[in-house]
Simulated assay, not measured.
Amino acid sequence: MSNLTQATTAPWRIGVLFSRTGFMSVIEETQYQGTQLAIEEVNEGGGVCGRELVPVAYDPGSDSAAYGHYAKRLMVEDQVSTIIRLLHLVEPQGGAAGGRTAKWPALVPDAL
């Protein structure tokens, strides 16, 4: 198998950053569940261009500093190419790793 084939059929790791604990979980738990459901449906349909979506999820626990920490961790350590998160995380208070500053793609399910 060529390197090109390996690169294009490898699973696509995507970050999922929603609080499932703490006060923000009232909103973000449903966003998390919807994201998981969408990922399952995409994978059941053959993935994206034949690539399975593999979520890498963290729970920032409604702590504004933790959002920045986990966003940076997803990008740097986990090497995800996209983060699915809430709109209020464009510039997390805990750091400048929220996507726009780091020029990282982010999918925002609650954007109006």
Rank of each mutant, 00 (worst) to 15 (best):
M1Q: 13
S2R: 01
N3E: 14
L4E: 14
A7L: 12
T8H: 08
P11L: 02
P11S: 05
W12H: 08
R13M: 05
G15D: 10
G15H: 07
G15N: 07
G15M: 07
V16I: 12
L17N: 09
S19I: 06
S19T: 08
F23L: 09
S25R: 04
V26A: 15
E28N: 04
E29C: 03
T30Q: 08
Y32Q: 11
Q33E: 14
Q33W: 09
T35L: 04
Q36Y: 09
Q36K: 13
L37N: 08
L37Q: 13
E41G: 04
V42R: 02
E44V: 00
V48G: 09
C49V: 07
R51N: 07
R51C: 03
E52I: 01
L53P: 05
V54A: 11
V56N: 10
D59E: 10
P60H: 08
G61R: 06
D63H: 00
S64Q: 15
A66R: 03
G68I: 06
H69R: 14
H69I: 07
Y70T: 06
Y70K: 00
Y70D: 13
A71M: 08
K72G: 14
V76Q: 09
E77K: 11
D78H: 07
Q79W: 01
Q79G: 13
V80S: 10
I83S: 03
I84C: 08
L86T: 09
L86C: 11
H88A: 11
H88F: 15
V90P: 03
P92Q: 02
P92C: 12
Q93V: 11
G94R: 09
G94V: 06
G94A: 04
A97R: 03
G98K: 02
T101L: 11
A106T: 14
A106W: 03
L107I: 14
P109D: 08
D110P: 03
A111G: 05
A111N: 06
